[in-house]
Design a protein around this nucleic acid. Structure first.
Lengths: 348, 348
DNA sequence: GACTGGCACTCGGCTCGACGGAGTGCCAGG
DNA sequence: CCTGGCACTCCGTCGAGCCGAGTGCCAGTC
């Protein structure tokens, strides 16, 4: 059997050699030579033969030599072929699955779910984990609360279906009566509960017309605060990062590979670009090296997946690591955690 | 004038030499020699004289030599003396103060305040910043909300004076009527609003006796969930870390100094121990090297302060960095941010 | 008595060259 | 088409040697 990849034809053994190179390189982090290869994997041929195959693989751009007379190292293209065609996602063991379940089931609220997910992902993959909070824009309104903090100061609280809570302090133009607050509270809830946030915003804007004209100024202030809370882009940018200690295993060239990554991890907006733009939001997306949409982060790969109840993605989570990572394991972990988190959000 | 420190007597010039050594070492990160010292600071004496002073300072344990015939490096004891007696806290410039104000005033809720504080601290000090969320146990109850999510499923929400929100999903033994929920909601609020959380918990436990006996089982479930939310220790452990990219400037010995710190930063419980146990919670506490209560983190210093409205500390914030840090600047930054955050929480 | 200039000494860090080993490419033979 | 052998390349390591920064001490000076 042969494999057609681009205009290149690779026979089975060459593919086996590529797979072996990647596996060895991932575990040792050192360029792998022909001799070590035939010893560790039962390839059944001599080193010289493997060398010929390696020459062909290099010709096609799947592997490269750091310098003449050194072993070979996989290229981004090599990893890509490996991920697409040579690896099967390692299924998690039952104990692993159970561990995920119990770990996430202990969560008491969204914050907790997100925090636990980050830890879990980081632990499972031994990489840096990133979890985006459920986005507001795709959630529905569960409840709107209006509290009197002072005669002319209200607290508006929005609770969403995904469990997130947004609050705003509203300074009123003058004292407001408890009855007005109660009335407004009722109106707000009937107008918005159960609706998606963008739709709820529309209802809010219509609401002003329905109240007695005396109350309009006060109501307008509350409404504008709520509209702001409902459509706050900033909140959609919330992400949590964990497992940075795993960067220690990255390698020694601190300034070249770790520092830019640490800096990127501080910039949450950048992180979202890193996670985002998956072609299929419900599947696991793998971006390898130069495919990563950040030029500071070459020699880095991202494995990400959308998550949410019932396969309807609310947000994204994933891991970041060196291109030289255990892809089958990482993909399995990301997929499993995404699935369980989605379930946990449905229940909680 | 002379300085009595322990059983040791140091004259003014020796103290000046110590101060100069620390300042030079902090800025260059290299052992400082006698010649460079007299050149850079106008000490008005010859290198030989300085050498004699240095020998005395070394004798008393304030400085040390990495190896024979190398320059001197301050010891923890030296930094301690410097912080206690030789440095005055650098006052922030008016633009700096204003920048802090505008940066924090833009915050819309507690989460936002905490996030902004971390960024601010990290930026100002160029170190790793740690901010603890306002603790629940020291806050008061602002509002308790009870929502019906499904016939036999409620959502209990607790909003505290510091703006934090805790939620719990409560599975009821059977369907509950809207009137019961409304009644219970009212009772909960009258019983707890305005009280500190530990006190509120007591009131909750008494509440069960006042409801009709038919409703007792349902009420008990809700109460126990709320009690749990009110007294959740886990929530008190919430902290936010930022500025880890600044670790890049730590030095080259990655494995010895950065890795353990990254690991500690992942463990929030550990972080709290790091911040906590200040002698005077309203002042800035400085822990230097061996004084830090974690033996993995020798060669690290912590500058921390309590914060909260009206000097009544709700929680702690601070920075972590190498013992070789700019103490006056760090102390000033931590103090200023703590003050402003306290104010921001009072308003918001 | 305190400070200073001079001097001998120490020791870490850098450079340079030699060496060994791992790995390759190629070629001739099976 | 595969294999064993061989010459070649080149990186990383090790040791020697040099340089410079810095020290401690001592004798001399104000």
């Amino acid at each position: 059997m042969e494999c057609q990849e681009g205009s290149v034809v690779l026979d089975d053994r060459k593919l086996a050699v590529l797979r072996a190179i990647i596996e060895d390189y991932v575990s040792t982090q050192e360029p792998v030579g022909s001799k070590a290869l035939v010893e560790r994997h039962g390839l059944g041929v001599s080193p010289a033969t493997v060398r010929n195959d390696m020459a062909a693989l290099e010709e096609d751009g799947f592997i490269a030599q750091p310098h003449t007379s050194a072993g070979r190292v996989p290229t981004d293209k090599g990893y890509r072929l490996f991920v697409d065609r040579l690896s099967s996602v390692r299924p998690l063991s039952t104990p692993e699955r159970r561990a995920i379940g119990t770990f996430l089931d202990g969560a008491v609220d969204v914050d907790d779910v997100v925090q636990r997910s980050v830890r879990l992902l980081a632990q499972m993959t031994r990489q840096v984990a990133i979890v985006q909070y459920p986005t507001l824009t795709r959630s529905t309104v569960r409840h709107v609360e209006l509290l009197v903090m002072a005669p002319a100061r209200l607290l508006a609280v929005l609770i969403t279906s995904s469990g997130r809570v947004e609050q705003r302090v509203v300074e009123m133009p003058g004292p407001v009566s408890e009855t007005l607050v109660a009335d407004l509270r009722a109106r707000l809830n009937t107008a918005t509960v159960g609706r998606r946030l963008p739709e709820a915003v529309e209802r809010l804007t219509e609401l002003s017309a329905t109240v007695p004209s005396d109350d309009r100024p006060a109501v307008a202030v509350v409404l504008s605060a709520l509209v702001e809370a409902f459509s706050d882009d900033r909140s959609d940018e919330r992400v949590l990062v964990g497992g940075t200690a795993n960067l220690a295993r990255f390698g020694e060239d601190f300034d070249r590979s770790i520092r830019p990554l640490l800096e990127a991890l501080e910039e949450h907006v950048v992180l979202l670009r890193l996670l985002g733009e998956a072609t299929d939001p419900s599947a696991v997306t793998v971006r390898i090296g130069s495919e990563v949409p950040l030029r500071e982060l070459t020699s880095t790969s991202v494995v990400a997946s959308g998550y949410g109840p019932d396969g309807e993605p609310l947000a994204t989570l994933g891991i970041v690591g060196p291109t030289r990572m255990d892809y089958p394991g990482s993909i399995a972990a990301v997929r499993a955690v995404a699935r369980y988190v989605g379930r946990a959000l449905t229940d909680g």
